[in-house]
Design a protein around this nucleic acid. Sequence first.
DNA 1: GTAGGGTTAG
Length: 696
Amino acid sequence: MIHPQKLIKRFQWPTPSSLNQTTQLHAHFIISGAAIPHPLSYPSTAHLSSRIPNPSTFYYNTLIRAYSRFHLPHLSILIHRQMITNAVPHDSHTFQFLFKSCSLPSMSLLHDDARWVFDGIGMKDVVSWTTIVAGLARAGCLDDARKLFDEMPERNVVSWTSMVSGYSQAGRAAESVEFFKKMISDDVLPDTVAMVAVLSACGQLRDLGLSKWVHQYVIDAGIGMSDNLAVALIDVYAKCGDLNSARQVFDLNGWKVLPAWNALIDGYCKVGDVDMARSLFDQTEVRDLITFNSMICGYIQSSQLKQALHLFVELRTSGFQPDKFTMVGLLSACANLNSLDQGKALHAYIEVSSIVFDVFLGTALLDMYAKCGRMDEALLVFNRMRDKDVMTWTAVISGLAMNGKGKLALEHFALMRKLSIRPNAVAYIGVLTACSHSNLVEEARKHFHEMTSLYNLEPEVEHYGCMVDILGRGGLLEEAVKLIDSMPIKPNAVIWGSLLSACRVYKNVDVGEKAAKNILALEPNEDAVYVQLSNLYANSGNWASASKIRRLMEERGIKKTAGYSSLSVAGQVHKFIAGDRCHPEINEIEAMMNVMAKKLKLAGYLPITSKISVDVNEEEKEQALFLHSERIAIAYGLMRLGASLPIHITKNLRVCEDCHIAIKLIAKIWNRKIVVRDRSRFHHFSDGQCSCNDFW
DNA sequence: GTAGGGTTAG
């Protein structure tokens, strides 16, 4: 027989009252001398009640409730059937417990037994009605819940709140607020719980005006404050970015409970004020895992990775175990840093730890692998995941797109739709990126159209950006310009930038000048524009204009962003800047680069010097190409990484055409896999080929 | 022994 304490531990009962329940349950087993049923075997309980003299309704109710809490709905139902056999009368509690048990996710909603009590025996007081309505709402069956709600002969705050929070939890925040407003116009006075429910909907909507109105309502209606309401207000203000109002609520005396601190710290992190968040963090007398997680994620999102790591160590020395929130934060840091090694270490840690592997964690893990260029690993994680939602699918689609598997990305998109998962705007960015990187113009047009016609999603700047990019790369400059002119929203610098780079490829000076003018109006200090425009002139042989732009750049004091590449060797990140000789092993690196140059020449490599717009002689141009940072990084990788290891490079700018040709050859000559993550995508070089099929 | 909420993530 399993000792009750062990069982309690196993199920991690959180509150003293549930401990009482468990004790009562086990008291029954101990008195009756029966073995405690194993959760996986659903034994007959026929023998149980026969040993207890005159089992009462209360006694049965307690058992049904305890089993429900143990997540053993089948046993609850067995006990209930016994109750019927023994002709023990029901009361309204019987119904609550039975229904609660039957509305567990593992059971079909409104199980026959619960339905029978509700309909057949007629436990139709407000509480029973509300139980059913709330159960349906929680399960996301809002239309059913609504129907039943409308049929209710009598409703109270709790019934209304069940609906408000049902809509909010289903992500239908606007309807949730509507319902709340209907509630007040129905003269039902909300209490603090109702206010918390509606505030959660306001938070989803990020609607500051609405939130302020709700706050004012709390004051005007004299609802009063509670810990939870104060936390909800702080949280909603933080979500809307109004940290001053959040602070005001926080500073009201008496509501500085830990969740309030946490909500405020998180709020400051979200608006990017990590310093203020840290100062609050340091003022907390008690901290929990949430305090640490919020602060760590705040550091990660502001790219202060060292600080994040420090705090992670502090979290552990404070006696906390990292949980899934911690892991998701750290994984996203690895994804953005392209730190495959560290990401793998986290993966290994997750495997051996007791952290529950859920959709969030799975998505973060697969995203990390995808963003580190390991689509094979990412797909393994993806296929292993039991639950997948829009974000999961989006991560895999975008990952495939970035890694040059456009067709496969679109296949996944089709599969996702087949599984009735509704794509959102972000998913469509992934889809369009896939089209862009695989040159699928026709597909792109189709999907761009469908996002509105099928899913009623308004294209955002990013979607237009992808389309302009796709059309531009395909040489359809006129159509791209037409699309920009037809946009209902103001085109941003990125869109004009895509057009400009297309103009450079197709040598269209007129449209290019127009694009450049528009970018400079929006971002006068954007160095890339000057460079691109000057390259465009150079490409079309107009050296005078090219150098004029260069001079303009100098006059305005705009410096070209230095290109750099980095790679990680044994956990240490090495950063290389074009032409930079600071690395301690620079002599060996240069020797290796000379070997590279010789071998490339033997393999028939001819540098493309026309892309260099500065007016210098051919030999100097050739030299400049050889000093591109990615080549230095590759040389270092060849020197220091074991021959069987792929070389993973991260670059802050795009790979130039010449380097692309050279790296393909290097991969063939050295028989190495080389993966370059540039500003917009991945290049997987192997055996003289690149995954992008020379299209980027 | 009955119904409604509740701060951190991809």
